[in-house]
Design a protein around this nucleic acid. Sequence first.
DNA 1: CAGTATCCCAGACGATACTG
DNA 2: CAGTATCGTCTGGGATACTG
Lengths: 112, 112
Amino acid sequence: MANPEVSRSSHTPESAAEGVETALRLLEGRWKLVILFHLFGGKVQRYSDLERLIPGVSQKMLAQQLRQLEADGLIERTVYPQVPPKVDYRMTAWGQALCPALDALLAWSEKR
Amino acid sequence: MANPEVSRSSHTPESAAEGVETALRLLEGRWKLVILFHLFGGKVQRYSDLERLIPGVSQKMLAQQLRQLEADGLIERTVYPQVPPKVDYRMTAWGQALCPALDALLAWSEKR
DNA sequence: CAGTATCCCAGACGATACTG
DNA sequence: CAGTATCGTCTGGGATACTG
């Protein structure tokens, strides 16, 4: 059959679309993917690291996208109570598990 | 290593993010995923079928999203020159190849 | 049947300034 | 260092009406 995964599962076209949309909504945002790819593979980055690694991002946008990724459970934020402040970010296990799926998407888009 | 796919490939965080964004841009649009899931697996649908299968979509939006999917090479459009008009839609091979990638995304989002 | 054409608006994003 | 707060812009999508 042409799409065994979908037909084997309990999904209707609607529920499959909805599930994928739920996933995509977590990734939508001008800077989220760059952030994720700078954290994949166990990398740990401070706020200022990300600011430097991602040219063009404003503080407002960087903070906002980090907050959302954290709220959605893809990344973790650690605050070190010291002066000057230190905060860093890393993937959660679930967030890291997204990597192969993105890779599949990347491979697909490059097949064109 | 934590993310063999990315590290084995020739991608920097930036280029990987860019590639995935390119893929995601093709899928962004309020109705594209539902359309795709109604065409995956070799299904062929007329414009009016899709209109009926997708409650809530306006003619404007349905036509627009179909045009974009066609322009991006995910689906094919066939016009039968007759009165009344008949038009139908099906996945291209490349478009169908997206299915497993979306499935990976779906599986990931359901793991939460 | 299978579409276009207009008008409108919410929300995403950017620029800039300020702060514990 | 690691953020918030405010304001302005731009565009994706909805409502509605019309057509070969």
